[in-house]
Write a protein that binds this DNA or RNA. Sequence first.
DNA 1: TAAAGACCAC
DNA 2: GTGGTCTTTA
Lengths: 263, 263
Amino acid sequence: MLELRLVQGSLLKKVLEAVKDLVNDANFDCSSTGFSLQAMDSSHVALVSLLLRSEGFEHYRCDRNLSMGMNLGNMSKMLKCAGNDDIITIKADDGSDTVTFMFESPTQDKIADFEMKLMDIDSEHLGIPDAEYHSIVRMPSGEFSRICKDLSSIGDTVLISVTKEGVKFSTAGDIGTANIVLRQNTTVDKPEDAIVIEMNEPVSLSFALRYMNSFTKATPLSETVTISLSSELPVVVEYKVAEMGYIRYYLAPKIEEEEDTKP
Amino acid sequence: MLELRLVQGSLLKKVLEAVKDLVNDANFDCSSTGFSLQAMDSSHVALVSLLLRSEGFEHYRCDRNLSMGMNLGNMSKMLKCAGNDDIITIKADDGSDTVTFMFESPTQDKIADFEMKLMDIDSEHLGIPDAEYHSIVRMPSGEFSRICKDLSSIGDTVLISVTKEGVKFSTAGDIGTANIVLRQNTTVDKPEDAIVIEMNEPVSLSFALRYMNSFTKATPLSETVTISLSSELPVVVEYKVAEMGYIRYYLAPKIEEEEDTKP
DNA sequence: TAAAGACCAC
DNA sequence: GTGGTCTTTA
């Protein structure tokens, strides 16, 4: 028996928006710790890892560990039927092949329940080792989103370079090149607006903008985003989910190509 | 000679938005009583009935009954040219094959007139008998609209059931099922927010969501909608038009289908 | 392809 | 608060 009651239902709606473009089907894993998901994107290049800790739910009952395979597109369709102020409850009976989403309006005038079929999904749950990162950049999520969008109109790869000067996002394409430099800035009105660069060692890595732009679908979840970089390691793009967890995207850097012009 | 002056011109604009998707061409009937329209939708399944009483107009002159055939798409195009605060006057000379819409800006700085060709349209004016309804639900129009929209992302038919518990909207589709229950609630801040269920007899009827969603185009006309249900009778979905009339949609229930699993 | 919703700027 | 743009869905 599983029953998870989330007062701020809009969080779950936003989480699905942030995942469904990247992953079609995935297992949600429920344990006493929390509600989590880990999946490769459909082209098997990026990895998404979501955690919503049990403490973040108003009520969290999970009698035994459960892995529920869901089609995220269908799940998202159903969650779109919840109001942004609704309380969302996820229910499943042990051994059932369905899951029920219940939406309660704040006034309790309206109570909706949506039942969805579960599916069997093979999933290799990868252990993600903790790592030391050479550089960690924290910045407003909207700004990061804007940068990725802007750069993708010029090129399809972003080179992220962190030096003591700041962080530079660069791209190049047929029509020209672009460089966007952000300097550390912690003297801001709101702490969310800060740009914090923790550089242990300079790094310079290239990533496919296509994936970065998918990651920024999580922007509505958090005012800030954290980008952790190490050479030879996948970048981690992390958005906190209000007091209850996170959504993390992993993407391997592009292998450094030879200079454009070869002899 | 016909001359109808409507101070709140936006009402007519909204009325056209509420009808033009359902009906392509229709006769507007003008008499001393008011300005009305009755038409089947283009697939001959639903019926729209509009009444704007003469008292609602600032000036209402209709020397003799007139039936003016209009293409509602074209009429809507012209009305879109009126500002929302404009005063709209509808004019037609007896025997003329055109109608003129005049738009006056509130400041009288701008006066526009648009002339449109009339057309001959066969119309069977159906008498709609008054009926006793088993159940009548009044609810915020926005909520009804939201429910119809949400359910159509799951299925294509809505089953509306009224019991003493409240009113339930249900659907089923490939990805799952959905039930939305509304309970009577009259203890609200604004009377328009009330959900009032007048149940003389329980009813349970199915309707095509496609049409329901067309009906909800009238939502901007009124804060509330009234749904009148009787078994064997078309449902009536009614929106009041501010102090001057109504727009009513009629839709026959779907015949109850046999159980899903046939021998 | 067209319409509706969401977001942003004014 | 309103209009305009852009994105998303049918």
